[in-house]
Amino acid sequence: MRPPGPADEPAVGLPRWAFVPATAGALFVVLPLVAMVTRVDWSGYWSLVSSASARAALVLSLQTSAASTALCVVLGVPLALVLARCRFPGADLLRSLVMVPLVLPPVVGGIALLYTFGRRGLLGETLQVAGLQVAFSTTAVVLAQTFVALPFLVMSLEGALRTAGSRYDVVAASLGARPTTVLRRVTLPLVWPGLLSGTVLSFARALGEFGATITFAGSLQGVTRTLPLEIYLQRETDPDAAVALSLLLVVVAVLVIAVTRQGRPGRITP
């Protein structure tokens, strides 16, 4: 027999009126996807999504999204830990600034990155002297995606850390565990669902990034032209290809979310 889980818990009663807006909300999300599917030219679908430009854009999108997600984890986990567990002057201001990309138009983010890493940017001139050109390169795509995706990981993980509290960390530290050991064997396993959720959201946001990428990285086939940029360009010349590629992007995003949601909540390692 399997142990009881959340699916075995009795359903909580809901007021009947809640199902009306809930249904409307679900239809609001589902109907546009259904409408897009009805416009796909299924007879020529494979030829539309298997062109050289489409394959290059898809591969580049997956590569850069994976790289930006890894960068989000490397930068976002420590940042979320600091925001959730440390108290220092300016913490609220820092938290607000970290969340700014959530409300900024992506094009504005691209302009900010351009004036930071561009040839005449704040750091760009120094990088140029060192022989590094960031703007309008694949690196620029990764940075643009990271800029817009990082807040999703920080927000999810910080919320999970605050919910979990620090009592288990304190107990582990009192037993002689070093801070790194506490983080690796106690803190992160406790907040694993929040970390996983934030990572998935970051990947999905990076995969669909458009505005900051085209502003900061441009649209060079095989170098900076990701799948959203390819869809935008095809929309002007070949609407059928744009719809087919849009469906492909939706399928990839759904598959990524479905696979990652199979992960189980972490446990404290003895």
Rank of each mutant, 00 (worst) to 15 (best):
C86N: 13
L245H: 03
T138L: 01
P151Y: 14
V250M: 08
T181K: 11
D8L: 05
V141H: 11
Q234C: 12
P3I: 10
L79K: 09
Q234N: 04
G109W: 08
C86T: 06
S50P: 01
V142N: 09
G118M: 00
V182P: 10
A18P: 09
L97G: 10
P89E: 03
E209N: 08
A56T: 02
F88R: 05
I214Q: 14
W17P: 02
L255W: 01
D240E: 07
A164N: 07
V108H: 06
V107W: 00
V37S: 15
S96K: 09
V49Q: 14
P239V: 00
L62A: 05
S202W: 06
R267I: 05
R261F: 03
R167T: 14
A80W: 08
P265Y: 11
V256C: 01
A52S: 14
V77K: 04
S68G: 08
Q234V: 06
F117H: 10
S53I: 05
G109L: 06
F152I: 13
V12R: 01
T23L: 12
L201F: 04
A56Q: 10
L249F: 11
G198W: 01
R235D: 02
G124R: 12
L190T: 04
T146W: 03
D169N: 07
L233I: 06
A24D: 08
A244D: 00
W42E: 07
V59F: 11
A258C: 06
R167W: 14
Q262K: 03
P270N: 03
D238A: 11
L201M: 15
V243M: 03
S166N: 01
P89I: 07
P193V: 00
L233H: 03
S96L: 12
L201G: 12
F147Y: 05
L207K: 04
V148R: 05
R2H: 09
G25W: 07
L249G: 09
M1W: 14
L104A: 13
T226H: 05
D92P: 11
T69V: 06
F216C: 04
T163I: 01
P179Q: 09
L249Y: 12
F210G: 08
E230G: 12
A160P: 15
L104T: 14
L102F: 09
V30L: 15
A112S: 07
I111T: 02
F19M: 08
S51M: 06
I214S: 09
L31H: 05
P3L: 13
L104D: 13
A18Q: 05
A144F: 13
V186C: 07
A253G: 09
T180M: 12
L104P: 09
R95F: 01
L207G: 01
G198T: 00
L196N: 12
S174E: 13
D41L: 11
T139Y: 12
S96F: 14
A206T: 04
R2C: 00
L75H: 07
S68Q: 04
F216P: 08
S96Y: 10
D92G: 14
